[in-house]
Amino acid sequence: MTGTRPGRTAVTKQKLFDAALRLVGERGAAGVTVDEIAAEAGVAKGTVYYNFASKDALVDALLRHGVDLLAARLRVAEEESETSSAMASLVDGMLGFFAEYPAFGQLLVSELWRTPGQWHDTLSLLRDDIVSIVRGQMQRLADTGRLPEGVQVGTASAALFGTLLVIALDWQVFQPERSLADVRESVLSLVRGLRPS
């Protein structure tokens, strides 16, 4: 095996991820075949099976890959020392990610709440990863007395995650003329409304 093989494999996997994401985002995972993914990626069908055992394994890896990218963007908020800046960073990370990868947002929403879903177990773990990052920022708000009394951190975390996900999709699908800055400010105004009166 040559030293360039791992690099080529990574490039090929990224091509397959990109192709699968475009197709799955349009039609859902069940409606896409390995032949279509290979054709969209510009590779032979065997290349898909060389890199992934099946279409299901490819979609599973795609979900993990996308959530890893999203988590990396959200973790930037952990570096902020001030809670308002951290929350703005969290919102920026989520909205920016879904602006860049709108098909992944569609995939996430369509598969996350599908009952029963083929990737439910994978998505449950991945959702927990993302919500735990959001929870860290919500805990910071709670620790500084900026959550209303009676609002539990876990509920607020899930609510913010779901809100950001749906707002990002609504923006991309129904209001694409709005700027990221405009959507961001709307979300931050909503979050600021969580302060106790």
Rank of each mutant, 00 (worst) to 15 (best):
S186I: 10
G162M: 04
L108E: 04
L194F: 13
E26T: 08
F174C: 08
G66D: 06
P176Y: 08
A19T: 10
S179T: 15
V32L: 13
D129V: 14
Q137T: 07
L123Q: 13
T33E: 11
L90Y: 06
K13P: 02
L108F: 15
L23P: 09
Y49M: 10
G7W: 07
S157R: 03
L164Q: 03
T144Y: 00
R195T: 13
A29V: 05
R192H: 14
E149D: 13
L58C: 03
R75L: 11
S197Q: 11
A30L: 12
V166Q: 13
P6L: 11
A181Y: 10
G136I: 05
V151G: 01
R127A: 14
L70G: 09
M138S: 05
G193F: 05
S54W: 01
M94Q: 10
F97A: 03
L180E: 03
T144P: 03
G193V: 05
Q118P: 10
L70N: 03
I130R: 02
M94K: 00
A39M: 08
I130Q: 07
T83D: 04
Y101A: 05
A19C: 13
G162N: 13
H120A: 15
A57D: 11
L169Q: 15
L164P: 00
R178Q: 08
L165N: 01
S132N: 09
R178W: 06
V67R: 02
S132A: 12
V32E: 07
E185A: 15
P102S: 09
